[in-house]
């Protein structure tokens, strides 16, 4: 009864009716967020067929929104970044990392620089970075914020604000590239897979912007599921979801993430991320 539900939403403080068991998931891809509903609608259809329940996708705008929805049981499954997955699992005891992208086992971040900054590629973060302008990606991103900040602090023993003359948050990997390419910021930190796909598409001018350093690898994006799904959707549901994800082979579906395939993952794989987040003060305790 969609009309009824809409009117109930107007009753403001009324919570939405607890619907007949619909399994809801969300995902924020690390590049190309256009037509989310259409692309991930197909993923929902696939999961629905595999799981035999109604599956719905809801688009969200930020990792924080995804975490909130996951915490409040508005979604039961989410494609999180490394850091957001850790945050979500801390808030929802019993939740579990199910699978990660093949590429996410050895993810990395590129530091890129505008040619006018005069910083050359090297094996370490160069001292020439000091005093430059610098932009992260989104504040909650693992590859655009957490890991680059960690390596900056490790190398310079200082907070980013004290290393650079200005630190911005572009909000997105594509925009980080655009901003460094236009010289608005001299240095940026960007997700390697976004950089490579933009390079391939010819959006990057190698005369103007280039990679100056690559971080060591770390685990990133993963599927995380709430612990109480078996109670709600029946015994063995969680394993069924894991299986369906690992067996997703249709390149059209995988291109939405974009990943070449999904491989098993566990909460422990993300221990290093959690430690890093704690080390730079993004997590308490």
């Amino acid at each position: 009864m969609p009309i009824l539900r809409r009117f109930l939403a107007l009753g403001l403080l009324l919570p939405a009716l607890a619907q007949a068991e619909t399994f809801v998931f969300t995902a924020i891809p690390d590049e190309d967020e256009s037509r989310l509903q259409e692309r991930f609608g197909k993923v929902a259809d696939y999961l629905g067929e595999q799981l035999g329940v109604e599956v719905q996708y809801i688009p969200v705008k930020s990792y924080a929104a995804a975490i909130t929805a996951f915490r409040n049981n508005q979604v039961q499954l989410a494609w999180f970044g490394g850091l957001s997955g850790v945050q979500a699992r801390r808030l929802v005891p019993g939740s579990e990392a199910l699978a990660q992208g093949y590429e996410d086992q050895f993810f990395k971040t590129y530091f890129i620089a505008h040619q006018s900054a005069g910083v050359d590629a090297s094996d370490t973060l160069s001292d020439a970075l000091r005093g430059k302008t610098f932009t992260f990606g989104s504040k909650g991103s693992t590859s655009g914020r957490l890991m680059p900040e960690f390596y900056l602090r490790e190398r310079f023993q200082a907070a980013p604000e004290d290393i650079f003359s200005r630190v911005g948050f572009s909000g997105d990997h594509s925009r980080t590239i655009a901003q460094v390419q236009s010289g608005a910021y001299q240095i940026g930190a960007v997700n390697f897979s976004v950089w490579e796909s933009e390079l391939e598409q010819g959006k990057v001018d190698p005369q103007k912007v280039s990679v100056i350093w690559t971080t060591p690898t770390y685990p990133d994006y993963q599927w995380t599921i709430r612990g109480d799904v078996d109670e709600r959707f029946g015994e063995g549901f969680k394993d069924q979801v894991r299986q369906s994800l690992l067996e997703m082979k249709d390149p059209d579906l995988l291109a939405s993430f974009p990943r070449q395939s999904f491989v098993p993952a566990s909460n422990d794989d993300y221990g290093p991320i959690e430690d890093t987040a704690r080390a730079i003060g993004l997590l308490d305790e």
Partner: peptide, 14 residues
């Protein structure tokens, strides 16, 4: 407008 509002995806918010 009531008709156009997005459906709220179910979650009980006790």
């Amino acid at each position: 407008a009531c008709w156009l509002l997005p459906e709220t995806v179910g979650f009980s918010n006790g």
